[in-house]
């Protein structure tokens, strides 16, 4: 691994962690969302490095382009950037941080002691994750999950519409019905 590579990956990792921390700490939900977008973009680059270009661009399209935009949209729509008031649960903050630290330590220990795969990243063939291969796998081996996911999406769409629907005044509805 070259020095450039280490610098490159280290830089990306730091950006990812810092953006995540910033998302965590920022008081404004809009900034949180933006930092999260930055995090996603960084991860997308890492995906490229891990030989997953399709996933990388899907990540940008779906997460950054759709999901986070929806977040921004809702935050702006509701005007819910900031909350007032204090932490109402006693000990929540301390406990959370303590547990988080233990968790990280555990995971790191796990990586050190349990994962034999402290292996170098593998060089992948050009078409390891080509759209064709992903498509073939998805429509043959994983056809059932694919259909299930499609169904989940459909039901989520309907669910979202039903949840946010405001009952229209009867007059308007009647006029529309006549037309």
């Amino acid at each position: 691994m070259t020095l450039i590579g280490i610098i490159f990956y280290g830089f990306l990792a730091i950006v990812a962690i810092v953006s995540a921390v910033a998302m965590l700490l920022n008081r404004s939900a809009i900034y949180s969302a933006l930092f999260l977008v930055l995090n996603f973009a960084t991860i997308a680059v890492l995906y490229l490095a891990l030989g997953a270009p399709f996933i990388a661009f899907t990540q940008v399209t779906v997460y950054a382009g759709a999901i986070m935009i929806l977040f921004l949209f809702v935050i702006a729509l509701l005007g819910a950037e900031k909350l007032s008031g204090h932490e109402p649960i006693k000990g929540q903050r301390t406990m959370a941080i303590v547990l988080g630290l233990i968790f990280v330590v555990e995971l790191v220990l796990f990586l050190i002691f349990r994962n034999q795969g402290i292996q170098p990243m593998l060089a992948l063939t050009q078409d390891f994750a080509s759209p064709q291969k992903i498509g073939i796998a998805m429509f043959t081996q994983y056809l059932l999950p694919f259909e299930v996911v499609a169904f989940i999406l459909l039901s989520a769409t309907i669910g979202a519409i039903v949840l946010t629907r405001v009952e229209k005044p009867a007059r308007l509805g009647a006029a529309r019905g006549k037309k």
């Binding site: 399709f54 996933i55 990540q59 779906v62 999901i67 994983y142 989940i152 999406l153 989520a156 769409t157």
Partner: peptide, 14 residues
């Protein structure tokens, strides 16, 4: 991951 993204999208919508 692709499936997770799709489900996440659905989840976010709802």
């Amino acid at each position: 991951v692709f499936f997770i993204m799709a489900v996440a999208a659905a989840e976010v919508a709802v």
